[in-house]
Design a protein around this nucleic acid. Structure first.
Length: 277
DNA sequence: AACCAGGTTATAA
DNA sequence: TTATAACCTGGT
């Protein structure tokens, strides 16, 4: 077991907020979480995370990256509070919430599935997908399945997707697969792009619009200058700022307000509206 | 029994 | 260029 310092972070708030579809809460309030290459059990004890895993190789750095522990959220939030006093109560409510750095390919598939869908069904679909096509991991006498590899995913057909129960989104996954076949190194490619380039690159895939592409960049590539505006955020802006408009108008409003941290702030709005208020 | 869900696409005005 | 219907499916 290793202990990792996680000042001012809330594990449960972070994992249960809806950004991650593969965290399992256990009776002792710890979580089993399936990461890219391993399963971890993580429990918060004060300002530390106690972590075990089936694979202890580089475990500390893996945990630090996944929970984004090297970023100074207090500093970011303090600065945002100064610039946006009218938003400070939301910011302060979200101080212990972290943006996870999740697997890129998993984010791509997960957020394509997420459109016009609910969290429970999304989780079920992803779980089935992993069970069918991912590598099995035994951890604490339980079965877990890693997210399927690139090489496995690009071989899948429309028929292979039937048991996943994703309805009309199946053709979008096929479009993604065709895209992936031509871009084996898409992760490295995106890392070398600015955010606008990366969004346009991803939106070539049928079923990936601005919202889904933004979520992929936010949760998979820790890009905070994106606009993951969904129905929850639209409701928040309407209730909180009395602003009604189309996505473009809301984007302009938020972009001018929050600049390079607009993605983080929008995620806080989502979190605040859906999980706190 | 409808209604809705972390949207996108295709079509029409 | 902007607005609106249609979309699989199961959870509530």
């Amino acid at each position: 077991m290793i202990k990792v310092y996680c000042k001012n972070m809330s594990l449960s708030e972070t994992l249960l907020s809806g950004q991650c579809f593969r965290a399992h809460q256990l009776e002792d309030d710890s979580f089993d979480v399936v990461l890219s290459d391993r399963v971890i059990n993580v429990k918060q004890v004060g300002e530390f995370l106690h972590v075990t895993s089936n694979n202890s190789h580089n475990l500390e750095s893996v945990v630090i990256e996944y929970f984004d522990l090297s970023r100074n959220y207090d500093l970011i939030i303090d600065n945002l509070c100064k610039e946006n006093v009218d938003f400070s109560d939301v910011l302060n409510c979200c101080r212990s919430y972290r943006i996870l750095k999740q697997n890129e390919l998993e984010m791509l598939v997960s957020y394509i599935i997420s459109q016009n869908n609910n969290v429970k069904r999304i989780s079920n679909s992803i779980e089935t997908f992993c069970k069918l096509y991912g590598k099995k991991i035994m951890f604490n006498k339980k079965e877990y399945y890693l997210f399927p590899s690139y090489d496995t995913i690009i071989k899948l057909t429309l028929d292979d997707l039937i048991p996943i129960k994703i309805g009309f989104r199946d053709k979008y996954i096929i479009s993604m697969i065709e895209f992936l076949k031509n871009h084996k190194d898409f992760v490295a490619e995106i890392k070398n792009m600015n955010t606008t380039e990366a969004l346009n690159y991803l939106m070539v895939i049928k079923g990936v619009g601005l919202k889904v592409a933004s979520c992929i960049l936010l949760f998979g590539f820790d890009r905070f200058d994106v606009f993951p505006i969904d129905t929850w955020v639209m409701h928040f802006v309407e209730n909180y700022y009395g602003l009604k408009g189309n996505i473009k108008e809301i984007s302009n409003f938020l972009g001018n307000k929050f600049n390079n941290n607009v993605g983080l702030c929008i995620q806080y709005m989502y979190h605040y509206n859906r999980n706190i208020k």
